[in-house]
Simulated scan of single mutants.
Amino acid sequence: MTTVLAVANQKGGVAKTTTVASLGAALSALGQRVLLVDLDPQGCLTFSLGHNPDRLDKSVHDVLVGDTKVREVLIEAGEGLTLMPATIDLAGAEAMLLMKPGREYTLKRALATVADDFDVVIVDCPPSLGVLTLNGLTAADSVLVPLQCETLAHRGVGQLLRTVDEIKQITNPDLDLLGALPTLYDSRTTHSRDVLADVSDRYDLPVLAPPIPRTVRFAEASASGSTVLAGRKNKGADAYRELAENLLASWTKGTPLPTLD
């Protein structure tokens, strides 16, 4: 069975796209057939994996609002990854989808057509709670919330959790909230630990291990059109590899996901 994971947080700058790309590469290295879906009109995932959104003829936009088949828009993204890219055209998809019956299920129906081709689908939701994010959450089996370890990190978390609850009540009752993934983590400071403790207490939200450390390698990888797993060894790559192993064990064996104490 294909596992669909949505990565969502309507607050920007939380390493959401980095998490999608790096986790996808780590799962691919574990032998999984991985499809990444860029639902962000800014096309950050598409760009970070070495493709210029302005030069693409077809994208996820054509799948969601037109008659284009999923396989017609898929492109190779290196490191064993397949990408359903985004372009700026996706910015107009919100209004167009509002006119469609069953609009929240559009992505779910599209992904069903390629379910046999992939083991894992990771959806990079846009930094908003509009129709595109609702599509990502409706299509997903589970949702992961990247959360930067900085002041005011919890802003918007409550709203996202309410949206997840509404999705579970209306369009996707089986959606599993995995928890918050700490990003931009600096183990040398008590501030990072305090932020995570606040989020855990305030929202009763599991905080997953391992935390993703702050490293310049993330910016370097995006600029080179690859993921942080490519190139020299670094702590960020090791953390995403460990997270991928934990997720795969949870999906295949039912092993509980490790959390921070």
Rank of each mutant, 00 (worst) to 15 (best):
S59E: 08
H61A: 14
D62C: 07
D62S: 10
V63C: 08
L64K: 04
L64V: 04
V65Y: 04
G66A: 15
G66P: 01
D67I: 02
D67F: 02
D67K: 15
K69D: 08
V70K: 06
V70Y: 07
V70G: 09
R71C: 00
R71V: 00
R71T: 05
E72K: 14
E72S: 13
E72G: 10
E72P: 13
L74W: 02
L74G: 06
L74E: 05
L74I: 09
A77M: 04
E79Y: 06
E79T: 03
E79P: 00
G80F: 07
G80H: 04
L81S: 08
L81W: 05
L81H: 01
T82E: 02
T82K: 11
T82R: 11
L83R: 05
L83C: 10
M84K: 05
M84F: 05
P85K: 06
P85M: 03
T87Y: 05
T87R: 14
T87P: 13
I88M: 13
I88Q: 12
I88P: 13
A91H: 06
G92F: 02
G92R: 04
E94H: 02
E94F: 01
A95I: 07
M96N: 12
M96T: 14
L98Q: 12
L98K: 06
P101T: 03
G102P: 00
G102Q: 04
R103D: 12
E104N: 10
E104F: 02
T106Q: 14
T106A: 14
L107Y: 08
K108C: 01
K108A: 09
K108L: 03
K108V: 01
R109H: 14
R109V: 04
A110T: 10
L111Y: 10
L111K: 11
A112D: 15
A112T: 10
V114R: 15
V114A: 14
A115P: 12
A115N: 11
D116W: 12
D117Q: 15
D117E: 15
F118Q: 11
D119M: 14
D119P: 14
V120P: 14
V120S: 12
V120D: 12
V120R: 15
V121M: 11
V121R: 12
I122W: 05
I122E: 04
I122Q: 02
V123S: 03
V123C: 01
C125E: 10
C125Y: 07
C125N: 12
S128K: 04
S128I: 00
L129G: 13
L129P: 12
L129N: 13
G130T: 09
V131F: 05
V131Y: 07
V131R: 05
L132P: 08
L132Q: 08
T133I: 01
L134S: 14
L134W: 10
N135D: 11
N135H: 09
G136I: 00
A140H: 06
A140M: 02
D141H: 15
S142F: 07
